[in-house]
Design a protein around this nucleic acid. Structure first.
Lengths: 341, 341
DNA sequence: ATGCTTTGAGAAAACGTTATTTTCGCGTTA
DNA sequence: TAACGCGAAAATAACGTTTTCTCAAAGCAT
């Protein structure tokens, strides 16, 4: 209360505490960090000074001095979208005493770079990133300087990092198998653009399924932008041939929604194809028919990511590791319908 | 390359650049900050040194020194859940040259405190917070020290802050009116627990609607936990009286999902009540019947929040301001069904 | 008593910046 | 020619911590 004459009160600092308690600055630091070499009487005096002043250490200065922040950043395409993985990861990290801050890359390569670099230059110890573009060489110097990088959902092109991936190929095979087992012989795939790693893996796996079954590939695989117009177009192409597809595999949730929207609007209920979607979503069970999906194991993926992250933080020189997490089929009805016609 | 003998390379710092360019530390700083008083030749030399070394300023040290970070934090209940508001806010902030980092409070009061305090002590300039508990007095010293606080979705109890709220009461009135206009005379409400501000506002508004219509309130308003069991119980109570409700207003998305789940499992299609839900959600239009909802204007709310935030950053002493954003009714079918029986 | 370790606190240097002050070279003016 | 002013670079002092070093006092054995 001595010199704070201005309206705006400054945050109390260690120096203030030291003055209040009548001890040296370094003694305050030792008390704050529970250094056992500080005497009981001194500790008490400092503690009361801390309490009366409402002192809180400045984490920024701490980190600058310590060179570590116990903070890890999450750079993900969309924070806002349903992203159970991030929630799981955050929970786990919190339990390990790590702070997690997230920022979204908005599916923009340049933005990802800016976000991740900003995290690195703020002293974040690690970054969990859902990589966007084909070039991640900007990460190399940061990693050399000690930034722990774990890729999620897709691997990072360029420097070798840890990665957690879903078993996309197995998921597609399960979807295909389920439809084939229910009598479908003409199965088509509609998915995301193949510039995206997961979309590429899934489309490739689907083509492999067709080939393994001795069925024609041409005209049955439709990757592309996830806009309604493109999806509707693909659907029309697939459903209006002389021997139309009786079943569909959707490559991701956006595609699934687009397909459902199109079918609801333009295809009579009793002529709709059987459907299996990649990725589960809320309400999937309340649709008519309930939606059969390939569900990713978000908790397991988050757990794996956290494991990799903490392992790398502890031992920065370890070799990069990839973890592939199994997926599972959730049969709800849409994928178990018999072929129409 | 002179002394970096260890495997792990240090990030280059201003001192390194200064040494490389053969100038003083402060000259490097001036070049980095585009100070016009630096000579062309010096600027060039420093710039090449920066490029060859790959120097990037340490934002942490910058912020410590500058006392400002142009960073604002978002503390929201669930980052992972669909939260279009946050996405909008982030986009706008990015356009204004602000960095946004988000952390989730997991609906836990203590966690909120930890997260927000951590943001403050890291030098974040502002915090957008979706407040949890009844006591936010911990914010007072931070605000006194200059932290800009904007509450979203609910006001903050304790220190007076800016806030952006949805017009909950008007939304409930629109929902009630829509159902009444379609012939319903027995309308019930199921919603979230009234410890939550929005739930309280909505339940209160619904009671007011009943009273204004001269209808009994008892037994028609069911706020509570959003667990399936509680919701099912409320539904049974409301639907199994001698004059059962023919229409329902759901107080939030979770409740809506719970109600839909219960109805799908236990009530034959032709005996289901009309439904209006608070908050829109994806796939609402693909349900059977398509779901009528009260939709919040997330972009408008995000925009308002950003306005308040920037205004406060610019002028910390301005009076707190509350902005109420209108909602709108999206009629899709479920709220326009005539009463059964 | 003397010397030697131990304990515990203070002083000061660092972390990587930016802001302020000092210094210096040089052209201008009296 | 000396004083002056000015532009531009160098030096230095912060920002709020942690950590290393120093050093006085106390404890203990000889």
């Amino acid at each position: 209360m001595t010199k704070a004459s201005g309206r705006r009160s400054r945050r109390p600092t260690m120096v203030d505490v030291a003055r209040e308690a009548g001890v040296a600055l370094s003694t305050v630091s030792r008390v704050v960090n529970a250094d056992p070499t500080v005497g009981a009487e001194f500790a008490r005096r400092v503690q009361t000074a801390i309490d009366t002043l409402g002192y809180r250490p400045d984490e920024q200065a701490q980190q600058l001095r310590r060179g570590t922040s116990r903070t890890i950043g999450v750079a993900v395409r969309e924070m806002s979208a349903r992203n159970p993985l991030m929630a799981e990861f955050e929970r786990g990290a919190y339990a390990s005493g790590l702070t997690v801050f997230a920022a979204s890359t908005a599916d923009d390569e340049e933005r990802e770079r800016a976000v991740v670099l900003s995290m690195a230059r703020r002293g974040f110890d690690g970054v969990l990133v859902e990589p966007i573009g084909p070039d991640h060489s900007y990460l190399a110097p940061e990693m050399a300087a000690g930034l722990a990088v774990v890729a999620i959902d897709r691997p990072i092109a360029g420097p070798a990092t840890d990665a957690v991936l879903a078993d996309n190929a197995a998921g597609i095979r399960m979807a295909y198998r389920q439809l084939a087992d229910h009598g479908h012989t003409s199965i088509a795939y509609i998915g995301d653009h193949e510039r995206i790693f997961t979309a590429r893996e899934r489309a490739d796996a689907f083509r492999a399924c067709l080939r393994a079954d001795g069925r024609p590939v041409t005209g049955m695989v439709h990757p592309g932008e996830t806009e309604q117009a493109r999806i509707s177009e693909a659907l029309r192409a697939v459903l209006s041939t002389e021997s139309p597809a009786t079943a569909l595999v959707c490559g991701n949730v956006t595609t699934t929604f687009g397909v459902l929207t199109h079918l609801a609007a333009e295809v009579p209920r009793d002529r709709r194809p059987a459907l299996v979607g990649f990725d589960d979503f809320p309400l999937a069970g309340l649709l008519d028919p309930p939606m059969t999906v390939i569900a990713q194991d978000s908790p397991a993926m988050a757990h794996a990511a956290l494991e990799l992250m903490t392992a790398r933080l502890a031992e920065p020189e370890r070799g990069p590791e990839w973890v592939t997490v199994p997926v599972r089929l959730v049969a709800r009805g849409s994928g178990e319908r018999a072929p129409v016609r």
